[in-house]
Amino acid sequence: MKEFVLLVYTSSHAIGIEKKLKNLGVPCKLSSIPRNLSSDCGICVRFDEIGLKTVEDLVKTLPFDIQEIVALES
């Protein structure tokens, strides 16, 4: 299954989003940011394609901006 990462501007946002996604039943985890995607020191939210729609819907409701959702190359 295709994997995605949700890149945010700060680790705090990643932690908040991961908690909300888990509450919504979306399997996901926090992980270090792939260095080819960002130079930030922090973390991103990693999830499978099955959760993509829920993640996209959640992002629209957040009071802050995210960077982007990126599909990981296998």
């Binding site: 680790s11 705090s12 922090g42």
Partner: peptide, 20 residues
């Protein structure tokens, strides 16, 4: 918290989020 993605850094970040 916010510096690195290892489990201790994430655990510290999660604590801060809970405090917030």
């Amino acid at each position: 918290a916010g510096r690195g993605g290892h489990r201790f850094a994430v655990a510290a970040g999660e604590i801060l989020y809970q405090v917030r």
